[in-house]
Nucleic acid binder design. Structure first.
Lengths: 146, 146
DNA sequence: TCCTTATTGAAAATTTGTTTCAATGACTTA
DNA sequence: TAAGTCATTGAAACAAATTTTCAATAAGGA
């Protein structure tokens, strides 16, 4: 079976909710899926703007929660006073290591992290929508400097 | 050997840094260790205020990073537009499950989470200061309601 | 095509967190 | 113990992120 594209998923989600599928929403979604990295609202806004789209930040702020709710986007971490996001659809779940000194972020995978989530879900009868694992510390390069 | 109290640890940290150990800082620390739950700046401020302490929010905002740096306090999650903290000294490391609907937070332990961190640390030559594992989803009660 | 009503952009408002600055007081040294 | 230095404090100003308001627009159903 063909995998649904993020656009289809989003449209379906919007419809099911009785909301309206607007070009602004689709443009934001498409742009986010072009960014293969973490992003913040400002970066997204500027990228859209540089391509001639005049989509307001208010609309971006309104759209992000929808994208998060339908599982296409995820809050990754809060740094420098604002939230950072990433798209997640089509990516393996992964964890983040963040260097507290140089701020570099590294992604890695470990199946135990989902295992723990799965077990917690079963044991407690909850429904897990998202797993976030973050390691904070100092990367090898920054350790040497000290 | 007697375990150092959080107050001693904090004083030691402050001294080593060449900073000054003020009553405001100690009062904040003591209050935080009276809260056996997650807290935010506003709650902390009000609790102090209700006890007659006139400590400004600016001072709280200035003190928190110190407490975090010496390992007594931890950022737990960012919700409702602001950060939530908890004291960690004397507690086992633990993970959080947060219900997206009722916002209840549940703590739990799983050693695999530290194991993963330890292995990442060794493999990549980094130094881990903090491990954060968060599960987001719907708790059993909220699932039923739907 | 018409109608209802959700969505949009712009601006105002709100909230969180940081910075400034003069007054205070913690710690060092004599 | 007194004196001097300079970090810390509170208050207020500031900055930035996010939300809300509101009138104009436009999506989707009839």
């Amino acid at each position: 079976m063909l995998q649904a594209s993020e656009v289809e998923i989003f449209r379906e989600f919007i419809r099911k909710r009785g909301l309206r599928y607007t070009p602004e929403r689709e443009t934001i979604l498409r742009e986010i899926f072009k960014i293969h990295d973490h992003f913040d609202v400002d970066e997204l806004y500027l990228r859209l703007r540089n391509q001639g789209y005049r989509i307001s930040k208010a609309t971006i702020y309104r759209t992000l929660p929808l994208l998060i709710e339908c599982g296409l986007v995820q809050e990754v971490y809060h740094e420098d006073g604002h939230m950072h996001y990433e798209h997640i659809y089509g990516h393996e779940p992964h964890a983040h290591f963040r260097c507290l000194s140089c701020r570099r972020v590294e992604e890695f995978r470990d199946e135990r992290l989902e295992e723990v989530a799965r077990e917690f879900q079963e044991k407690h009868g909850v429904q897990i929508k998202m797993v976030r694992y973050e390691l904070l510390g100092y990367c090898a390069a920054c350790r040497k400097e000290e």
